[in-house]
Amino acid sequence: MSAKTALVSGAGSGIGAGIATRLAAEGYRVAVNDLKPEACARTVDAIAKAGGTAEAFPADISDPAAVTRLVADVAGKLGPVALLVNNAGHGHQAAFLDISLAEFERMFAVHVRGTFLMCQAVLPSMLAAGEGVIVNVASQLGQVGGVELVHYAGAKGAIIAMTKSLAREVAKKGVRVNAIAPGPINTPLVEALSANWKKAKAAELPLGRFGETHEVAGAVAFLASPDGALFVGQTLGPNSGDVML
Rank of each mutant, 00 (worst) to 15 (best):
K172D: 15
A195H: 11
A195G: 07
K164E: 14
E169L: 01
L207P: 04
G211F: 05
P182S: 11
G218N: 13
G211T: 01
E204M: 05
H214V: 05
G237C: 08
A167M: 12
M162Y: 06
A171E: 12
A195I: 11
K173G: 03
E212S: 01
L207N: 06
L207E: 05
R176K: 14
N178D: 02
G233E: 03
I180S: 13
I185D: 02
G208Q: 09
V175N: 14
I160W: 06
R168D: 13
R168G: 15
L236V: 00
G208T: 07
V220R: 12
K199L: 13
L189D: 12
Q234G: 00
H214S: 07
E215H: 05
A167W: 15
I185N: 04
F231D: 01
A219N: 10
L189F: 14
K201A: 13
A158H: 02
F231Y: 14
R176D: 01
R176F: 02
G157H: 01
I180V: 14
V220K: 09
E204L: 04
K199W: 10
K201T: 11
T235Y: 07
M162W: 06
L236W: 01
V220W: 08
E191Y: 09
P206Q: 01
E169C: 00
A192V: 03
V216E: 09
R168A: 14
A171G: 03
T235L: 09
L205I: 04
W197N: 14
V170C: 13
G228W: 03
L230S: 07
A179P: 08
A202H: 13
E169D: 12
K198V: 10
V216K: 04
K172I: 07
V220T: 04
A217R: 06
K173C: 03
A158I: 05
T213G: 05
P188V: 01
I159E: 00
R209W: 09
Q234P: 00
V190G: 08
A221T: 07
N178T: 08
G157F: 00
L223F: 06
G183L: 11
H214A: 02
T187Y: 12
F210W: 14
P226H: 06
T213F: 08
I185R: 00
I159T: 02
L189I: 12
G211K: 03
A179I: 12
V220A: 04
T187L: 09
F231R: 06
E212A: 03
